[in-house]
């Protein structure tokens, strides 16, 4: 089913379900099954594979780095890859590294499912799930501020470099000094903007009335319920099978 048409609450529940399942699962088969499910949800929801790749590309190096570090620093178990007498990778190390990477991947894919919706829909769904409007609004505003701050940081960094500041070729100590210098205007700018923002919000009547009404109402359709039911059934059966397998 197309993810853009799915009720935002269902998407939030799927995110919660998939990431919880990924965190509690111990075996690879379970993790691989969860990975397959998230991929199927995305692909069946008409998200092109190339889009998934583009969005995850930046974080992929992080996963690989985590995998390598886990492999190298977990020293328990039989040697898997040895260099004469020196054990490079152990079986247990490889296993935990693979499990951690898989978990992270599942969580990232689940997060991608949520990015198919609009911010205001999630705001609406959080309030229908009894999260106070102020809190929901705050969380989403914080998320919206982040890319703005990043853009601003980039501009400041460029301005400093154009005035001669060496960042790329400098030593670590100078780099830290340079970056700490640049944090000042970014934080100052963010604080000032937050102040202006709150005044603008109050001027437009934010929290003027305790009871908020909304123009649009979210309504779970039959297809949304069905989707959620199928998802819950699949996840719980996977977890049940994993529990039985672990027991026997």
């Amino acid at each position: 089913m197309n993810l853009a048409r799915l009720d935002p609450r269902v998407k939030l529940l799927i995110l919660a379900g998939l990431s919880t399942a990924a965190l509690v699962s111990r075996s690879y088969t379970t993790l691989l099954a969860l990975l397959a499910i998230s991929l199927i949800i995305l692909l069946a929801g008409s998200i092109a594979p190339i889009t998934i790749w583009m969005k995850l590309r930046g974080l992929f190096s992080l996963i690989v780095a985590l995998f390598v570090l886990q492999c190298l620093f977990n020293r328990s178990g039989e040697p898997l890859l040895a260099f004469t007498k020196f054990t490079l990778i152990t079986q247990a190390g490889f296993k935990t590294a693979a499990a951690i990477s898989l978990r992270l991947l599942v969580i990232l894919l689940a997060a991608l499912i949520v990015t198919t919706g609009e911010a205001r829909d999630y705001l609406l769904s959080l309030t229908t799930m009894k999260v106070p409007y102020e809190v929901a609004f705050m969380v989403l505003t914080a998320l919206r501020f982040l890319p703005m701050m990043r853009e601003e940081a980039q501009d400041v960094l460029c301005a400093a470099q154009l005035r001669g500041l060496q960042i790329k070729k400098a030593g670590l100590k100078r780099q830290v000094g340079a970056y700490s210098k640049i944090i000042i205007p970014i934080v100052a700018g963010a604080v000032r903007r937050a102040e202006d923002f709150s005044i603008a919000m109050e001027a437009r009547g934010f929290r003027a009335h305790p009871q908020r009404t909304t123009m649009r109402k979210l309504r779970m359709r039959a297809s949304d319920w069905l989707y959620l039911a199928v998802f819950c059934a699949i996840i719980s059966s996977i977890e049940a099978i994993a529990a039985i397998a672990a027991f026997t």
Partner: peptide, 16 residues
């Protein structure tokens, strides 16, 4: 930057 000086449209973003 040694050849070209640049002043941004928004002065806030270049005072640090």
């Amino acid at each position: 930057g040694k050849k070209v000086g640049y002043v941004f449209q928004n002065p806030d973003r270049q005072l640090f």
